[in-house]
Amino acid sequence: MAFLNEHYPSCSSYYKQKIAFRTSRRRWNDVTIGKAVGITVTNYVRHHMTQYEYLMGALKLTREEARIVVAEEVKDIWQSWQQPRLDTTPADDASAAPTDQ
């Protein structure tokens, strides 16, 4: 969590916990913590915060096509999480977590 807190300060605690769990359960060979977390963040955002799955399932886009469609959205979320927090309240308030998951 320390790495996520330092490098993704605007990411809510809800998502940090999800990402930390996913990062820790995978075996990473010869990969830095930064690379492992970056891959996990990108994958989590793509699969859980965009229409990626819908594009492949309902619209029958290929994985590569769906990635192209959501790439900008993934990048925007990823970068927003890396920005310093502008307020002094923790990033773990209830409003930061989705209600449908």
Rank of each mutant, 00 (worst) to 15 (best):
R25K: 11
M56T: 11
L59H: 06
Q17S: 15
D87T: 14
T32D: 08
E73N: 09
S12C: 14
K75S: 15
M56S: 01
N5R: 11
A94G: 05
S10C: 11
E64L: 09
Y52L: 09
P98D: 14
N29H: 03
D100G: 03
A36H: 10
N29M: 06
V41S: 03
N43R: 07
T50Q: 03
R63Q: 13
S24Q: 08
Q83F: 02
R85Q: 14
A36Q: 03
V74T: 08
C11S: 01
E72I: 10
N5A: 04
M49N: 05
Y52M: 03
A20P: 01
G34L: 10
K18C: 12
P84T: 05
T50C: 06
D87V: 05
Q83V: 01
R63P: 03
M1A: 13
D76H: 04
F3C: 00
T40E: 14
P98Y: 09
M56L: 08
S10N: 15
A58H: 15
R22P: 01
I33R: 12
S95R: 12
Y54V: 05
H48N: 15
V31C: 12
A71P: 07
S13M: 02
A97P: 06
L4W: 03
S13F: 11
I33M: 10
E6K: 13
R27N: 07
D100W: 14
I68H: 09
Y54H: 13
Y15Q: 05
T88R: 13
S95P: 01
Y15I: 01
S24D: 14
E73Q: 14
A91I: 01
Y52S: 09
Q79W: 01
L59A: 09
R27Q: 14
N5W: 10
E72L: 06
D76W: 01
K60R: 14
R46L: 10
R63E: 13
Y52P: 02
Q83E: 14
I77P: 03
K75F: 11
N43I: 03
V70P: 08
Y54A: 07
Q51K: 06
E6D: 06
S24F: 00
Q101T: 04
S80D: 12
D87E: 08
T50F: 05
G34K: 08
I77N: 07
A91Y: 00
N5S: 09
R67N: 15
G57Y: 10
V45Y: 03
Q83N: 11
L4A: 07
M49W: 05
R22D: 13
T99P: 00
C11E: 02
Y52N: 02
A2H: 08
Q83W: 01
D30W: 05
Q51F: 09
H7A: 01
H48M: 12
P84Q: 13
A71E: 15
G57K: 12
C11D: 00
D100N: 08
V37N: 04
M56Q: 15
V74G: 02
I33G: 02
Q101I: 11
I33A: 02
T32A: 05
K35L: 08
G34W: 13
D76F: 00
S95Q: 09
R85C: 05
